[in-house]
Design a protein around this nucleic acid. Structure first.
Lengths: 138, 138
DNA sequence: GTACCTGCAAACAATTTGCACTAAG
DNA sequence: CTTAGTGCAAATTGTTTGCAGGTAC
């Protein structure tokens, strides 16, 4: 996991400007274990930055993904979710209630997945779809 | 892999009507190794069924996915791709040119992935992102 | 001072939906 | 006959874009 300073450092070193909005987004994501959507971040950030825009959120998140600080998940076909944990792991998505949960996978497993393709693989996603316990009962 | 008759059989047994459009879509998908989008199917089907609509394509594909004959891939965040091979396997997506390729994974690996969650898992997707050889050279 | 960023609103595009008509059984 | 399925077009919605003004450095 990363720290706010670490990310700011890297942004600076790559010549990006450290704007208030970027800092706010990074702080909002730091240490999170959930998988917010753009809308969720927007609503949360509005409190401290009433004029913040989706354009800024999307562009910053894109930047963070390129720098390897977060993952953009397409597990939910309705909207993208952002995962502030950059290390490869799997995700479970409940097709009924939308529950989105991290699943740890071993280093051995990660290596195996990475080696599956003959191409230059930058990123691996493992998505499990099904019903969570709550929804399975119904 | 499935046959056209097998799918028609199952549709019938579940009380669905065997329309010309459904048959055409199923025939168009049968045995394919690529991963067409809705638009691709639409363009191909227009030749034999000039009035076919996206509504029909999307609803039929949805049906086929529910019955386990195809997978709906969200590896490309721009559009969904349909994979007529229902057995669990991985996919590679070139972030530069959009190449989308099947990758075989062993039964052992599949079992391992399926067992990752404590929940009732219906479907597993493994997406590898990167650059294909062509794009990597540039 | 000068790029780069941001906010805004409009644009975009894939998918979904409502409804009148058609055809499978 | 009856009702699920279809085609059409409009609606929807998450994300992207263009541009004028703002701000980090």
């Amino acid at each position: 996991m990363w720290t706010v300073d670490e990310v700011l450092e890297k942004l600076k070193s790559r010549g990006y400007k450290l704007t208030g909005q970027r800092k706010a987004i990074i702080e909002k994501l730091c240490g999170r274990k959930d998988h917010p959507t753009a809308e969720q971040l927007y609503n949360e950030l509005k409190k401290s930055h009433p004029a913040i825009s989706f354009a800024t959120i999307y562009s910053t998140v894109q930047l963070l993904a390129e720098m390897g600080f977060l993952q953009i998940l397409t597990i939910d076909d309705k909207k993208t979710h952002f995962d502030p944990t950059p290390e490869t792991h799997a995700h479970f998505f409940c097709q009924s209630c939308g529950l989105l949960e991290d699943i740890n996978i071993s280093q051995e497993e990660r290596d195996k997945l990475n080696g599956l393709s003959k191409y230059n693989v930058r990123n691996v996603q493992v998505y499990l779809y099904g019903l969570c316990n709550e929804c399975d009962k119904k």
